[in-house]
Every structure is written in structure tokens, then in C-alpha cells.
Design a protein around this nucleic acid. Sequence first.
DNA 1: AAGTATACCAACCGCGAGCGC
DNA 2: GGCGCTCGCGGTTGGTATACT
Length: 202
Amino acid sequence: MPKAPISTKCTRKEVNRGAWTAEEDQKLAQVIEIHGPKRWKSVAAKAGLNRCGKSCRLRWMNYLRPNIKRGNISDQEEDLIVRLHKLLGNRWSLIAGRLPGRTDNEIKNYWNSHLSKKIKQNEKQNRSSRMQEPVLENSKVSDMDTVPKESEEGTFKRDDNDSKSCSIGDIFFNFHSEEPLNLDWMSPFLEMDETWFNFAYI
DNA sequence: AAGTATACCAACCGCGAGCGC
DNA sequence: GGCGCTCGCGGTTGGTATACT
């Protein structure tokens, strides 16, 4: 008889769901203060919360953690999010890692509700304005043209071998530069993870 | 004022990776 | 090596607030 797949879903009937109460937050924070943010299943049990570990982790990561900023994403932060998304695609945790006090969930929500629309609008405007411009020989492509299509749609893949087409120079050096940059040397780094990024993005 | 549409965001879900046994 | 558990991530859902008709 085949074994049932391991479920990560909180299926216990008695498990609390939905919005967290102030009391639950307090209990969770107390237990984490003592035992640390690990072993979420036991944290939930120790706190006497009828919540699954996953739910506790999410609550801690997005709300209860110290130094969490809420709301009012500044223009600077927004600009950074756009640039990072251009580079990394939907790797929200990496993007959040570059924005102190912001969570991946918040950035993801902000992107989905604000920025994705904004960018689509910009694209439309760019396209329509380009339609009216005369086509110049050897004319330089715009920033948008250097971004992989998938990235625009938010489905940039981690292992995308075509990542060379992402205009990393726009992000790291001079976002609005008119000068073409030779960035071939950087393409190997595009396959790497946060480590190189911490090094490269200052 | 009431009903409907849209925007926002907290929370949930499924999946994959990492780790210890 | 295989299994089970835990964690983290990204996609999605659903409830609430606000705007619009």
C-alpha cells in the first residue's frame, strides 16, 4: 500500500485559522523570545497556540519580528524594488533582503498591487511613443527591451540560461546611461545566488 | 443609501531543498 | 540511499476597505 504523501497543510480541525489576535501575537512573541525563531511546530505547541508551525513562522516573519517597517514604501525603495525585480524576477526573499525592514510578502503584495500595473502602463506608453518616433539606424534599445519577456510577466526562472539578456548594467551602474556597457564579464554571476549579490550591490 | 466593483494585504497552500536519522 | 521532518519560498486566495454607480 503506497504511503500517503506528507502534507504540509494545516489540516487539524482544531487548528485556528484566519487573522491573528493580539493575544496570540503576544504568546508567540514570548515563546520566541525564550526559545528563538526555530522549530516552529514546537514553538506553536509551547505557546499554546492552536496554529500550525507554518502559520507561526509567517506571522513572526511578517509582523512580529523586530525592525519591521510597515506601509509607506518610499520612492527610493520603490525604485530599488523595480531594479531588483528586473534583475532577479520574482525572487521576493532576495529582493526583501536588500530592503531593510521589508518582508518578502509585503514586497510581493506591493509589486502585484502597485508596480506590475505601473510597469505595464509605462510599457504601453513606451510602445505608443516609439510607434510615433522615426526608426534610427543603430539606435539603442530602451531599458525595457533588454529585459527578458518572462521577467516582465513575473515568471523569471532561477535557472534561466538566457539570463544574459537581462540588462544588469542598468541596475548596478548607471540606470539611465546612454552609453553601451560591456558587461559580458558579469554574466557568470547571474547564475549565482545571494552571496555574490551581497558583494556586488553596494 | 444601497449595491457593486476594485484595491489592498494578511494568511494559506503546495512544492522543493536541506538535514538528521 | 531512503525516509521523515522542518523550513523557506513564491503563487494564490479570501476578507476587508474604499471607490464608484
